[in-house]
Amino acid sequence: MRIRATVAAVSGALALSALAVPAAQAAGGGTSYRAEVASVLAQHASGRTAFSAASAPVGDLKVSFSNFKIAKAIKVGPTAHVSVAVSYTLTHEAGLDITSDSFFSLPALYRGSSSAPDNDLSGDEPATCTKASATTATCKGRIDIYPSGEFSSELKNSQAGTWHAAAVALDFDSEKSAVQFDLGTTLVQRNSTLTVNASPEPVKKGRTITVTGKLSRANWESHKYAGLGNQPVKLQFRKKGSSTYTTLKTIKSDSTGYLKTTTKATADGYFRYSFAGFTSTSAVDVTGDFVDVQ
């Protein structure tokens, strides 16, 4: 769901007409909840400017959010659904019944500025909010990401990297809503994979070992893995009986992601490649390949 598309579909600032739909209908599935969240984010983002107070709730529902917690990085492959746990604190006015069927809250992620986000991610179901006091609750929800399938258009390769956290609250009875932007950040990353093969096996001590492999990265648009070229990758060795890998050298993947280098056989042990990753792309270590040195 792209916020841009949601705004365009309704031609201008979004009204809360969607909230007139009974809550029971919204409970029919993730699509309805996602549409509600996208609408509220777009509506309130359109009223923000560069001078708006950071992390202040906006909307006509008197709530605020804090203590937003989510993984520091989210690895997303080319096809598989990814669901990430989120928790946060909801503070509300004393007269608001957050246990009512007409009330729900969801966490969200958005990309870009809070005044002009260009994409959003949310959950298939509302968060579960448990009362902590007359005016506070602890909420636990999820962010559901679909790189392929029904919501496959929600991620573009260029959108990998830093995303910002937000939380939404809606009350169907009063037809009011609120959103709080800038609650934190996380990395939504294109997942990486590595392979390794060390040969010959077995090998005589002092002889040359050739270590090959391939570094690949998820493509969210083709929904496949593709070789990741011109990236520094470490060749590491762990001696049999040890739990620690030592870096032997750093090489670069070729234009197709292929890796190849040589080293000397010194002792029985495991060879692996290790990629540190970067903002848009996850780090990865491959399971070591054992070589018997005779």
Rank of each mutant, 00 (worst) to 15 (best):
Q180T: 05
G269C: 03
L187M: 11
T186R: 08
V179S: 02
N157V: 12
K214G: 09
G59V: 09
N219P: 05
A53S: 15
D101V: 06
I251E: 12
V86A: 06
V284F: 03
N230M: 03
T212W: 00
V196R: 02
A218S: 08
Y33G: 11
S199I: 06
T246G: 08
S174W: 00
G77V: 08
K239Q: 13
I143G: 15
D292C: 00
G184D: 11
V291N: 07
S222G: 01
G59F: 04
D118C: 05
A169P: 08
S216M: 03
A45W: 02
Y273W: 04
A267W: 01
P78N: 05
R4Y: 12
A50P: 00
H81M: 01
L109I: 10
Q294Y: 12
Y225R: 10
V284M: 06
H81W: 15
S11H: 13
G229D: 08
R48D: 13
T279W: 01
V168M: 04
I251L: 02
G141D: 11
K62T: 15
S177W: 11
Q236Y: 01
A27W: 09
F65P: 06
K131H: 07
D101C: 00
G112P: 05
K239I: 04
V286A: 04
D285W: 01
T130K: 14
V233H: 08
K75F: 15
H81P: 03
L235D: 03
P147Y: 04
L183Q: 13
G59P: 05
S52C: 10
R238L: 12
A53G: 15
L106H: 12
